[in-house]
Design a protein around this nucleic acid. Structure first.
Lengths: 200, 200
DNA sequence: ACGCTGACTAAGCGCTTGCTTAGCGTCGCA
DNA sequence: TGCGACGCTAAGCAAGCGCTTAGTCAGCGT
């Protein structure tokens, strides 16, 4: 019953803090959120935030880093679990959109609060974003190579597919008309069309 | 030579203020921008801002309103200038994306700072956003009706097309690899594919 | 029994924020 | 020539900000 048995107090506090910060940043933006907001949402005093994070920005960085790394991981898994470029693209977009619906608060912070990071942190995150973009681009290139896809400029098509998927986090609302699964499946189909898939 | 001859001082100051606020909001977000930032960028004292706008939020609202109304106008013009649903969709997406590249600072404020509006202002803006979405949706529906398009759920396809186009404002940089014209043309083609256009 | 450690709080410091006040100079008009 | 309206500034107020300080308290090894 006591969570301390299975989880140290400091650890559960850390994640409560990160969750509270993520939700607040998503709802009001980094600059619109105060450290008092975060502390209150996590059920503690403002000073307790600084036991775990040196600055408010380091909270944002921790959230952003975890979110981007999770995205890279899930995209790689989706790619490696499918055989052909079309199947890979569909699986990757499906996974990506599932992440941007189920985790839309995380996704909003990840995609729309980059400007609040310090220069060094921003550089690290930009590296991860480049890797994510490259994963999509490579699958498109492989599909063009194999003759499955016919899209003009691969770079612009990559941006179009990713843009469509990222933007889901901006408009998605829980308890809306469409389930995450439906949106993900639809976007995967859209991506295949955009890539000029000759099947489907 | 004297701008006061052709334009009242108050009017040019007003637009300088709006331009400065738009650029600052786009770069640092509404809450990350101070009234002193805006005043300095417009070349005046902080108090001068309040001669023209009662609050900082009313500046945001003025920018947001003008941006949304311009979008509605340009989409209607694009639609009315084309004959068939495919030509209309292509023209509308082309126009929309041109607006989101050439006016990417405006577009960033318009799409990503909605949460900073007051409830009343937000309601007005939401009405305009609904109208914009409806314009795309109606063309898709007309194309399905005429047999030109074959897309599954019209609502989700609308969101996918608009999401792809809106997101352009997030990643577009001036002096990048692609011109606004090229991006707009590419996205128009993507939109036709997403709609399931049997031609092109 | 003891002091140490680590998570936490109450209080508050110095600064910045959005916005206001009081007043100045210039203009059109009587 | 006088005067009010207007656009603007210098100075500053109250509130809120990120973050710090000083200290409390439970748990633990010795």
């Amino acid at each position: 019953m006591n969570p301390r048995v299975s989880l140290p107090a400091a650890e559960s506090t850390r994640t409560k803090l990160l969750d509270a910060a993520r939700d607040a940043f998503a709802a009001k933006g980094f600059h619109g959120t105060t450290t008092r907001d975060i502390a209150a949402a996590a059920g503690m005093s403002p000073a307790a935030v600084y036991v775990h994070h040196r600055t408010k920005e380091s909270l944002l960085y921790a959230i952003s880093l975890a979110g981007h790394e999770a995205t890279v991981r899930s995209l790689r898994e989706a790619r490696d679990g499918a055989g052909t470029p079309p199947a890979q693209l569909a699986a990757m977009v499906h996974t990506f959109v599932m992440g941007h619906t189920l985790g839309h608060t995380m996704a909003r912070v990840v995609n729309y609060e980059l400007a609040a990071l310090t220069d060094e942190h921003r550089a690290t995150i930009d590296g991860l974003r480049h890797a994510i973009q490259l994963l999509i681009r490579e699958v498109l290139a492989a599909g063009v190579e194999s003759g499955d896809f016919d899209c003009g400029e691969i770079g612009m098509t990559t941006n179009a597919i990713m843009g469509m998927s990222i933007d889901v986090a901006r408009w998605y609302v829980e308890d809306g008309d469409w389930s995450p699964e439906r949106i993900a499946a639809h976007n995967a189909q859209m991506a295949l069309r955009m890539a000029g898939y000759r099947g489907g």
